[in-house]
Design a protein around this nucleic acid. Structure first.
Length: 576
DNA sequence: GCCGTTTTCGGCCCGACTGTTTTCAGTCG
């Protein structure tokens, strides 16, 4: 049996939907495939495993008889025959054209049929020769903008780290807020939902003078191209490839517009369907019965009109939040102020830039109760990892800092390398002297799934382990997660009674929200850590908190919300 | 292809903007 992950299967369904669209298939059928792709991405357990244990997949909303059969085939054979079949009908690079702004399935079909364009290079050549503008549905303007898009690689599907987008959002807000008559500027979209990466930026403005605001927006410094400039909608592309969309709305529609432009699209569709069932209409201007407005000025009112409590933006993915809201079972989400400390940090003893004492002082300044010093172990020579002798010396230094009365307790620890065979970089006798034993993979990322999984499972058997750090090793937009069976690992962590990390570094955010939610559902406490190597890294927590909220985590689901004594007791209890 | 306090058939979220048109199709979110 060739097992496929949910994410891999989702990719197959997306690819199938793209090609069916180009082919001109029934749009609702295509939507069904896109829906199932999204459902798969958010689903709390691997379908391959659920299938093996006999679950009827059609119980899952969005999966019917046909798609359940396709999933079974994929799990069995590792391929989706419908996709293989339609791939044979079209040039392989054709779906790349979908990434260009202004090109959708219909126009791609025209390009293929009437101009033999099958690749981005073909498109550029045809545009230079002036052969695009004569095609039906095309013109000189579109030809020019497509040529520019190909040559400048203006790919609007590129994503950006949330942390990268933050200063851009801030600057746009400052620019627009300075325009006279502007009453409100609010970021919406995936940025407001707290996603780890964002596609484009959505901003919402309430203003007396829409035209001036729109002009200020489309003439900001650093804009490569204005994609749209209408009365209520504007869209620009910055030099760095970040697209920003502006929506101007009347104050009476602010709440409805904020809800609408926050999304996600799937959440919006779910809510509109709900409105429809109640004889109401929901759009970005408000909630309406017949033509009469029922709500719209604020988000709470919009939800209330649909019989729901306000749903936090981080949950709006149509991943069960509407049902939970209806049943009065929305989680009370964790907030940054709930954290009382951090259990994963580095100092000048390995690859950090601050001393133990400076780290402790910063923790105290932030009002924390505790901070663990967990420098790298000996094997990680590039990071100046500590051997037994230096670790023993560091324990004395920690004791000295603890004697200073800084108002924060420093825990001893180590980020111990998981070696290739699953053994740890220190013997039990050394680990047993530490308050916190963090284990992590820093080498041999390319091992096959079974070997990598077994390696980590073996490390978890060691009696002194506190938690597994950055469990998949991913670096957002740079390095894929290593191939590992996280469900088996979470199961082992649960059985073992230890913990798992959400690493709050904005490039890691590892675990991701899907697996962090699975950890919660298994009852595994999550630790949200800065993995600080410098003073600036103390600001990472808020990214981790957003990720935790997206995973439905409350205060009680997170280990480092405990006060010191309770925390120490929990750490001791993990030891056999 | 999915789904059901209207329904097992007939629906399927809704609106703005652009460019190509001469009233609208395609794209986008």
């Amino acid at each position: 049996m060739v097992s496929m992950t949910n994410v891999e299967m989702a990719g197959q369904f997306e690819a199938l939907a793209d090609l069916l669209e180009i082919k001109g298939e029934n749009p609702f059928k295509i939507r069904a495939y896109r829906t199932v792709a999204r459902v798969l991405g958010d689903h709390p357990a691997e379908l391959a495993a659920e299938l093996a244990s006999g679950r009827d997949l059609t119980e899952i909303s969005g999966i019917g008889k046909e798609i359940a059969a396709k999933i079974a085939t994929m799990v069995e054979t590792g391929s989706l025959p419908a996709l293989e079949k339609i791939r044979a009908e079209f040039p392989p690079a054709l779906p790349d054209l979908l990434k260009l702004p202004g090109l959708g399935p219909k126009r791609i079909r025209t390009l293929l049929d009437q101009c033999a364009v099958t690749t981005l290079d073909d498109l550029a050549a045809a545009a230079r020769a002036g052969r695009i503008q004569t095609l039906p549905g095309f013109g000189a303007k579109l030809e020019a903008s497509l040529l520019e898009a190909v040559t400048k690689r203006l790919d609007t599907t590129v994503r950006h780290l949330r942390a990268t987008a933050e200063p851009v959002v801030q600057r746009i807000i400052e620019t627009l807020a300075a325009v006279p008559g502007v009453k409100q500027v609010t970021p919406a979209g995936s940025f407001r939902r707290g996603r780890d990466t964002v596609g484009d930026l959505d901003l919402l403005v309430v203003a007396d003078n829409p035209a001036a605001v729109m002009t200020a927006f489309t003439t900001q410094p650093g804009i490569a191209r204005v994609l749209a400039h209408g009365e209520t909608k504007g869209s620009v592309l910055f030099d760095r490839g970040i697209q920003a969309d502006l929506r101007l709305v009347p104050a009476a529609s602010y709440g409805a517009a904020l809800h609408y432009f926050t999304g996600s699209q799937a959440h919006n569709i779910a809510l509109r369907r709900r409105a429809q069932q109640q004889g109401l209409k929901l759009n970005e201007y408000g909630v309406f019965r017949e033509e009469a407005p029922v709500a719209g000025a604020d988000e709470e009112g919009v939800f209330a009109a649909l019989g729901l409590p306000w749903i936090p933006p981080e949950l709006r993915e149509d991943a069960g939040e509407v049902e939970a809201a209806e049943a009065g079972r929305l989680p009370e989400l964790i907030e940054e102020r709930d954290l009382r400390g951090d259990l994963h940090n580095h100092t000048t003893w390995s690859d950090g830039t601050l001393s133990v004492e400076a780290m402790a002082r910063q923790a105290a300044a932030l009002g924390w109760s505790y901070i663990a010093i967990t420098d790298h172990s000996q094997r990680l020579t590039v990071a100046n990892g500590l051997d037994e002798r230096r670790l023993a010396e560091q324990l004395e230094e920690v004791a000295r800092v603890n004697s200073l009365g800084l108002g924060v307790h420093v825990l001893t620890g180590s980020e111990v390398d998981i070696l290739e065979d699953g053994s740890l970089d220190f013997p039990d006798a050394v680990l047993s002297r530490l308050d916190v034993v963090v284990i992590a993979v820093h080498s041999r990322f390319k091992l096959d799934r079974e070997t990598q999984t077994t390696r980590i499972l073996r490390a978890l058997e060691r009696p002194q382990v506190s938690f597994l750090a950055h469990p998949t090793g991913r670096l957002l937009l740079e390095r894929d997660p290593y191939d590992v069976d996280l469900d088996r690992i979470l199961e082992a962590i649960h059985a073992r009674g230890c913990f798992v990390e959400i690493n709050a570094h904005p490039m890691r955010l590892d675990l991701n929200e899907v697996y962090a939610r699975r950890a919660r559902e298994r009852g595994i406490p999550v630790v949200i850590n800065n993995d600080a190597h410098s003073l600036a890294d103390f600001a990472h927590h808020r990214h981790g908190i957003l990720q935790a909220r997206r995973a439905w985590l409350g205060r009680d689901d997170v280990l480092n919300t405990l006060p010191l004594e309770a925390l120490l007791a929990r750490l001791r209890a993990t030891r056999r």
